[in-house]
Design a protein around this nucleic acid. Structure first.
Lengths: 344, 344
DNA sequence: TTGGATTACGAAAACGATTAAGTAAGCCAA
DNA sequence: TTGGCTTACTTAATCGTTTTCGTAATCCAA
């Protein structure tokens, strides 16, 4: 391990001078700066991040907190896509990414304790159970923080545009001729509330009547749950002609039940998902869905978090909504006469 | 920030005593240990990892290096699944995970330099281009290291059992009656060489003749490439009755072409993938594939890496092969007479 | 020539921990 | 009573940086 002192000795200067040269400080002559930098390169000097952050209180490490109900972890397609983009952006600003967990060494700790122990400069929170006391503790702390798809009053938040998403989906289905639209929504979170409100508002505006039985809950990413909810909808006296699922992934369950009951998509029933994950585009027929712009979501989250860290005075906590895009796949089409005759 | 000195003052002992109490050192009385621990808890003391690792040269951080050709990053389903399991295991041993990149702050650096700068205790390498000079530099260093699905002579390696995988797939297809089996394999890596060798060996043992035209290359995870290769196979004078794709994901491309040409799976042609990702099970018809045990792969990789770190003297670099399992989906069936009549 | 700026550097303290070495107190045996 | 062990601490150095402050040298204006 070659330290700053080795470089100093090699140049006949003090360690302080080396530090200044490396960090681009002004009170040093151009000649010595070059001499020092050359020596550092020759000796293979690398700054020790532990020593540096012990002094400066800055680690250039960003914590990532992600815990979903289904324990998908990194295999969650929507999240891993957001995270990948977050990571790329963070790295371009000189930050590294580390995962937050509930350990300090072999002892268990809260998320906040873990963050303090590791001295992360900031934290991004996504997809967690936002009612978890440990998550709340973290959001009440003074660590710079960005939440994804959730708003904590005065905290920075980056959100997918769920209101527009549901409006566009419903409007599109309505345009195809559907008047009996069911909505299987995820468990009650901020995201779900927005989607649900937008669903109702859009239906009302379009004059679509939504029977209570057309609304069902099934956890996000829960294939079995979505299958069950779909089965319930299809066995109603007047089943819907179109179903909107909680997300593309759980749609697998819903579509499975439809096929199993001998119905075909979209001639017998139309379906739509949410998220626009890759999977949705390769299903047969491809999913009509609302694409969430995960790339932008992750990038903006990183940018904003770094703003909070580097310009705390002038950065105000915003709630940034990232637009998505309607993807019209063949899973939705005009309802046939048999399907619609019992209604309207 | 409450430090060890604050706790010391609060207990009227020295900082050294606090450190010993916290770290379970023997030369301290049970009474003071308890007093110190209580005070630490009361004051909300948390050890500062930067200070600690500056002294001890141990960070309890594990670096993860993953860069695939397609820049999938975390969205790579196979890898993210391995990593998730790696992460869970590492955390249970008190280690955190951090990603390795080519930056030190805003300056660019090699992977090795990044590791040294951050003082990671060990590194896991997966899916990278193992001919990349920077990856080689890393493997020639003295950092504890585990590679996944690749062998660097004297380094620890954890590998999926590609030999058994291909043997089982070929044997299964042969058992269904196939004698014209094509293999679209990925770019030439250690993994590919193993699969290819096993493919040839098994075919030979079963008396299957493999025309050169039945072997094609298409990069892993490359849907378009796999589509093209499949198209080439299907336009041969005597097309194969079964095709093995590089992986489940790129199989999407191959299956697309088959459908596009008006053929149906498996009545006209059988297909098999590799990996056993979730996607494979939800395709219609579900993929016959070889499931890689990503969970075990990740877990063992973490265990072995930690062994290397904690018991360097007694841990020998092994090449551990993790068995997978044949998944028989409806994408493969007995070839019909039309398909086979031109041959055998 | 004097003295106030400016420039370029060094000395030393500090960050928060760990740990080798030193020591005071207590105990016990001879 | 003496001296050798233990036990339970403390002292002080150290890890590799950063940063404040001090200072010698140079310059320039009066």
């Amino acid at each position: 391990m070659v330290s700053i002192h080795d470089v100093a000795k090699h140049c006949n200067v003090s360690a302080a001078t080396v530090s200044k040269a490396i960090n681009g400080r002004p009170d040093i002559s151009e000649a010595t700066r070059e001499r020092v930098l050359q020596a550092a390169a020759d000796l293979g000097y690398l700054p020790n991040s532990a020593a540096r952050s012990l002094k400066t209180k800055r680690t250039y490490n960003l914590g990532v907190l992600f815990v979903d109900k289904k324990k998908s972890g990194l295999t969650h397609e929507y999240f891993s896509s957001v995270l990948e983009s977050f990571k790329v952006e963070a790295e371009s600003h000189g930050y590294d990414i580390t995962f937050i967990n509930q350990n300090i060494g072999l002892q268990s700790a809260t998320y906040l304790e873990h963050c303090k122990h590791r001295n992360v400069d900031g934290v991004v929170i996504a997809c967690v159970d936002f009612t978890d006391p440990q998550v709340l503790e973290l959001t009440y702390s003074d660590i710079p923080l960005v939440t994804i798809d959730h708003i904590f009053d005065d905290r920075m938040a980056v959100l997918a545009d769920n209101v527009t998403g549901l409006r566009e989906l419903v409007t599109y289905l309505h345009g195809l001729g559907h008047r009996q639209i069911a909505f299987i929504h995820g468990e009650m979170t901020a995201v779900t509330r927005n989607r649900l409100a937008s669903f109702h508002k859009t239906c009302e505006a379009l004059g679509i009547v939504v029977p209570d039985a057309y609304l069902r809950t099934s956890e996000y990413h829960d294939i079995a749950g979505c299958a069950e909810a779909t089965r319930a909808l299809l066995t109603l006296p007047t089943p819907p002609t179109a179903i909107i699922f909680p997300d593309d992934f759980s749609a697998i369950g819903g579509r499975g039940v439809i096929t199993e009951l001998g119905l075909s998509i979209p001639s017998d029933i139309s379906v739509a998902g949410y998220d626009g994950i890759y999977l949705a585009s390769v299903m047969h027929p491809p999913m009509t869905t609302y694409l969430q712009d995960t790339k932008t979501l992750g990038k903006i989250a990183a940018e904003k978090l770094i703003d909070l860290i580097e310009q705390p005075k002038t950065t105000i906590a915003e709630h940034i909504v990232i637009p998505g895009a309607l993807i019209t796949g063949a899973s939705a089409a005009s309802p046939n006469s048999i399907q619609t005759n019992g209604f309207e």
